[in-house]
């Protein structure tokens, strides 16, 4: 397993560098930050000084070399907007996004397992059809619409929840997590249902039933374990997309996460912060992918054996 993890880590290095290079170059194609940060009366000398101070006058290769040199020394540069360390800003914002993504996926996965298994247990029944309809609807709801509607119904209309922000403890989580969870819940429910329908009709399940295993045991000990692999794959992708920045939710609910930080950095041509945020999320996503692969190996002996060869 150790070799498997090491191999996955090594194979992640190249894509990570490619991502960083892509962001580095593309960010600089979006325009000159001087026009944003200097007054319109700035003289050519002032513009040149700004460009030189921030290293934008160097060749792109020199800038890339300086950037990666800085990364190896854990120097990620300073924010043009705030003057703060880019790493500090990214590290400050990231845990809030991780918390949000974690809570969202826990709820979505738990809900999907229960609803998907329940629906799969009696395929094509009324319950199954209702579950399928609702899960498809959930997977299709635009999060922006859901968020604003949720604010006006549950916060303004019923007064049961805060509209936004993070200062109301547990209640602050309800609308952002619900908004983020609804789509993964819908998608995962469909995946779990499909996998469970196959699993429940498999020979080993029929054997278990013939030996007198109860419904709950059949589902939880036999079918669900075998249905977990495809669900885990999809859940992994969904988690990655959440970690990558729940931009809409963070923006609407004033959640101080990395998605909002990245958007602000792009609009503010704040290259150092953007690069630090992308590096942090990219590393996390690569780690997540390794964790998912390890989970996959733990769930499936065939994968485990291949991995240890």
């Amino acid at each position: 397993m150790f070799h498997f993890v090491r191999r996955r880590m090594l194979s992640s290095v190249l894509p990570l560098v490619a991502v960083l290079l892509g962001v580095f170059v593309l960010a600089r194609l979006t325009g000159d930050p001087a026009s944003l940060y200097l007054p319109e009366s700035a003289t050519p000398a002032q513009r040149a000084a700004f460009t030189e101070r921030n290293g934008f006058d160097d060749s792109i290769w020199q800038q890339i070399a300086d950037y990666f040199g800085g990364v190896f020394q854990l120097d990620f540069g300073e924010s043009l907007r705030t003057g703060e360390s880019a790493a500090t800003m990214a590290l400050r914002a990231f845990p809030a996004t991780l918390q949000l993504a974690g809570a969202t996926m826990l709820i979505a996965a738990a809900g999907a397992v229960v609803i998907g298994s329940w629906a799969a247990f009696r395929p094509n029944s009324l319950a199954d059809r209702i579950a399928s309809f609702l899960s498809m609807t959930a997977a299709s709801v635009p999060d922006f619409w859901f968020a604003i509607t949720g604010v006006w119904i549950f916060a303004v209309g019923l007064g049961a929840l805060p509209t936004s922000g993070v200062s109301d403890g547990m209640l602050s989580w309800v609308l952002p997590v619900a908004t983020l969870a609804i789509r993964p819940l819908g998608v995962l429910t469909q995946v779990v249902r499909g996998a469970m329908v196959s699993a429940l009709s498999a020979p080993y399940v029929r054997l278990a039933r013939s030996k007198g295993a109860g419904s709950v045991r059949v589902v939880s000990h036999h079918a669900l374990r075998n249905a977990a692999a495809p669900a885990l794959t999809v859940a992994g992708d969904l988690t990655v997309s959440l970690v990558n920045g729940a931009v809409v939710v963070e923006t609407i609910f004033g959640w101080p996460g990395i998605g909002k930080l990245m958007i602000d950095s792009i609009t503010g041509r704040d290259f150092a912060v953007l690069q630090a945020a992308v590096l942090l999320t990219a590393v996390t996503i690569f780690v997540l992918n390794i964790v998912i692969d390890v989970c996959y190996a733990l769930l499936d002996a065939r994968v485990r054996e291949t991995a240890t060869v």
């Binding site: 400050r92 914002a93 845990p95 809030a96 991780l98 918390q99 974690g102 809570a103 826990l106 993070v166 200062s167 403890g169 547990m170 602050s172 989580w173 959640w255 101080p256």
Partner: peptide, 18 residues
Amino acid sequence: LSTALAASACTVANSDSV
């Protein structure tokens, strides 16, 4: 996971909930 969820439900990282 339960502990993480419970902890998450109380405080957002980097917020002092002032």
